[in-house]
Design a protein around this nucleic acid. Sequence first.
DNA 1: AAAATAAAAGAGTTTTTTGTCTTTTATTAA
DNA 2: TTAATAAAAGACAAAAAACTCTTTTATTTT
Lengths: 160, 160
Amino acid sequence: MSFIKFCYLCAIQQKWMFSKTCEYAIRAVMFITRETKDGKRVGVREIAEGIDSPVHFIAKILQELSKRGIVQSLKGPTGGFYMDGNTLTHTLADIVLAVDGDKLFNGCGLGLSECSEKQPCPLHAEFKKIRKDLHELLARTKLGELQDKFDMSTFYLSRR
Amino acid sequence: MSFIKFCYLCAIQQKWMFSKTCEYAIRAVMFITRETKDGKRVGVREIAEGIDSPVHFIAKILQELSKRGIVQSLKGPTGGFYMDGNTLTHTLADIVLAVDGDKLFNGCGLGLSECSEKQPCPLHAEFKKIRKDLHELLARTKLGELQDKFDMSTFYLSRR
DNA sequence: AAAATAAAAGAGTTTTTTGTCTTTTATTAA
DNA sequence: TTAATAAAAGACAAAAAACTCTTTTATTTT
Ligand code: FES
Ligand code: FES
C-alpha cells in the first residue's frame, strides 16, 4: 500500500477534481485560446512548453480534442492548433466531459454505482449542491470569454 | 491512450472527488459508525459485505485508519472495528486528509504546482470557493452526528 | 515536384492505484 | 493453557493512468 507516504499533517497525496489528462487538456486549450487570437497557430512543442507538460502526452490529448471539434488543427508548415469562432463557443464543461466523462457532474461522491435520489448516500444532498456549483462554473465559462479575460489581466498556466 | 473509451455523450470515465481508497474509507467508517453504536464490533468481512468492497483491500485501509486513531480495533474473538467517544468526534475531513492528503483542500484545480494568490490560474477565484464549500461540508460533518442521522432515516452505503 | 514541417496514429514503457493472498501477532473463550 | 478468532503486516499481482517513442500522413513552401 502506498496511500500514506507522509505524516498526518504533511500528507500530500490527493486527486483533486480532474485527472491529470484533463488538467493538461484544460490548460492546453486555454493556452491555445490565449496565443491564437490573431489568427496565428501554435505547435505542440510550444504548447507543451507553455503549460509545462510532456510534449507527446499533450499531443495525444490534443489529437482527441481536435477530433471532437474542441480545438482546430492544421498540418504542415505554419500549421498547428488554433481556435476559431466555433470552437470559442465551447465551455470548460465540454472539455471535461470529452476527456473525463460525466462522473464529475453526475457521480456519487461516495462512489456508489450511481447517484440516486431514491437510494441516497448519507451525503447525497450536500454533494449534489457542490456538484451543481462546479458544473455551473465550468458550463458558464466559455472559451471566448476567457479570451477577453486574458486581455484584462495576467493569469498563469504554468508555474515551476 | 485510454482516456476516451466511449462516445462523447455516453462518456463515462471520470475521477470525481476522492480516490477509490478514500471512498471505501469513508463508507467503511460510516458503516462502522452505524453498526457499533451499542458497543458491538464489526469484523472486516462484515464491513466489506456491507459497503461492497474487496475484503483484503478494506482491511488494509482500516489498519491505517486504526493506526491514525480514526477507528478503534480489537483483535481476537469478539474483536473487530468499532467507534468510541473519541473517534466519534472526528470529521469526514479527517478521513480524507488521512487517506488522500490535503490537495482537495489546497490544490490548484488546474494542477499547477501549488494554488497561489500571487500567481492565480484563470479559475483560481472560482475554484477557491468550491474548495471552501467542500471543505466546510466535510469538516462540519462529525461522525457522531452522522450516527444520529442514521437513526432518523435510511441511507445507503452499498448498491449494486 | 521535392523538401521541409507539423499533426495523426499507434505501439510500447513506466508508474501509480487497486486488489489478492499468505503469514504473523494479539486476544479471548473454552 | 490451548484452540479459535480476528486484526496486523507484508509480499505479490492486475489494471489503469501517465508518459515516451517511432512511423505515417497531410500541407506548404521553395
Ligand atoms: S447517492 Fe451519493 S451523492 Fe447521490
Ligand atoms: S492557482 Fe489554480 S486554483 Fe488557485
